[in-house]
């Protein structure tokens, strides 16, 4: 996948990000250059504190960077004012979190419908589309369940359905398998892989879990705020 025919969905150049000031200042990203292409799943891996999540937040436009440029789908995201960035994020990105972040008082279908409601789509239509999305992730019989009545794997699948219901072109995933057991983690990654294969979408996954590396197309390794290597992942039978 090094020789990409697809355009870059994310183009990051010279990204620098520090936290704190004076003696306590810590530079977390030290000049990151990275391209992520449509139709691929990129894994961001590396040791804890290496800057993976910070880079993910910067790509998602939910964290201001100190220097550099990030273009997402041709839009200079890092230079957009916060309000426009929020709107852009809502229209083009989906998020999957380690802790799921489902609203406990809402049913699975209502949780999935949230991105549509944010886009001011009517509640009835949003719920219908949310149910259809839950059907796609195999939770058609759990649409009216509250998160507390779902297993961890089911909750993450609800989160995936929520991330996909808006048909985002960029899917941002932070440790999506961290709270799941092995088999559930594999299922979730397979689902994300399927999304990543779509030619007009791409998936970025921060993960520690080496058991799921096989699902990615490329893997960028971060150490001490720098990308120390990007490699294509060779799967069994595809080498």
């Amino acid at each position: 996948m090094d020789d990409h025919t697809q355009p870059a969905a994310v183009r990051a150049r010279g990204i620098v990000k520090s936290f704190g000031t004076g003696d306590t200042q810590v530079t977390v990203l030290r000049g990151i250059d990275l391209d992520i292409y449509l139709g691929e799943m990129l894994l961001l891996v590396g040791e804890s504190g290496g800057g993976k999540t910070t880079l993910l937040s910067a790509i998602a436009g939910i964290l201001d960077i100190d220097a550099g440029d990030i273009d997402v789908l041709g839009v200079p995201l890092s230079r957009l004012p916060p309000g426009k960035r929020t709107v852009f994020r809502g229209q083009t990105m989906g998020f999957i979190y380690q802790q799921f972040n489902l609203l406990p008082a809402l049913t699975a279908a209502e949780n999935v419908a949230i991105p549509l409601l944010i886009q001011k789509i009517g509640r009835h239509e949003a719920i219908q589309r949310a149910r259809a999305m839950l059907d796609r992730v195999g939770l058609e019989d759990r649409t009216e369940f509250l998160p507390k009545n779902l297993s961890g794997g089911q909750q993450q699948r609800v989160a995936i359905a929520r991330a996909l219901v808006n048909e985002p072109r960029l899917l941002i995933c932070d440790e999506p398998t961290a709270a799941l057991d092995g088999p559930n983690g594999q299922k979730v990654m397979a689902l994300l892989r399927e999304v990543g294969r779509s030619p007009d979408r791409c998936v970025v996954v921060v993960t520690h879990d080496s058991r799921v590396f096989q699902y990615g197309d490329r893997m960028a390794r971060l150490t001490d705020g720098r990308i120390v290597g990007i490699e294509s992942i060779v799967r069994e039978g595809t080498a």
């Binding site: 809502g90 998020f95 972040n101 991105p115 944010i118």
Partner: peptide
Amino acid sequence: RQFGALKAMGAS
């Protein structure tokens, strides 16, 4: 965290 998630998903 829930409000943060809503903000990340595009809620102004």
